[in-house]
Nucleic acid binder design. Sequence first.
DNA 1: TATTGTTATACTCTATAACTATA
DNA 2: TATAGTTATAGAGTATAACAATA
Lengths: 149, 149
Amino acid sequence: MSRNEGPEVGSRLGYLLKHAQLRMAELNTKALAPYGIDGRELGVLLVLAGGEPKSQQQAAQRLSVDRTTMVALLDTLEDKGLVSRHPDAADRRRNVVELTPRGHDLVRRATKASDDAERALLAPLSPQAAKQLRNALQEIVSSADDEQA
Amino acid sequence: MSRNEGPEVGSRLGYLLKHAQLRMAELNTKALAPYGIDGRELGVLLVLAGGEPKSQQQAAQRLSVDRTTMVALLDTLEDKGLVSRHPDAADRRRNVVELTPRGHDLVRRATKASDDAERALLAPLSPQAAKQLRNALQEIVSSADDEQA
DNA sequence: TATTGTTATACTCTATAACTATA
DNA sequence: TATAGTTATAGAGTATAACAATA
């Protein structure tokens, strides 16, 4: 008979989310290393790959990072030849940021590699449980976004 | 008819876990502020509250933090009068770290406050979905631990 | 006056290396 | 020799303040 030890740190959501996130970042880093980027950079590329061309500030807002952080992120992606910046003709304070052809090609291949990393993280779960996890996280994150707005 | 925009960053597990974790940390910080600690410090206190007395290194391993990080963490908790360190009589290289009476009292009250923060994070989910989320994260994290071992 | 991108700077979190005292 | 705790230090990641160009 084991007595109750009380609340355990390993069942706290803060602990679980932090360690799951660290594990995902680690898997992404390994999976993306052959492409010369990490998970955060893939995130930026995916924002730029979808929909309308965006300014640096719009890309930053989409990822909830500061615009000064976005400057540094785009500097490295530009150095790697994956994105290009041009002044917006309609508002020359803005930079329009777009994927280069090489950036487009890389985001497609790197996304597949990152899909593999996600599958590795979710490996211990049933397909249904994996889908429910993703859905639950999406609800939590989007509801947090609503409260900001 | 909207055309397919391709993979979106908002459905990536890396993005979702990071933002859910940030949100949880923010809620914990607010909930625990009246007690003068944050979520990481509550994590340390919970490790020390459970089971056998532990050395600094054992506490660090339980949380997967470096022993040098644990030194700083315990310095602040000791300054707050929540933990005490004594040399281990059986091996005087070690410090046995224990909660003070004030630490025991605080961890009990602070855990309740953090429970409220967790409920706030999980508010958009059904009770069943909330339980499944916690279970899924536990499976992922413990399976990652196994691979380290 | 306000906004976008930029730079300089600082703060937090974390890890590595080297020191000490013990074993 | 090896280990536990400590210190100094350095590297990420992030945010704040101030500046230039543009609105």
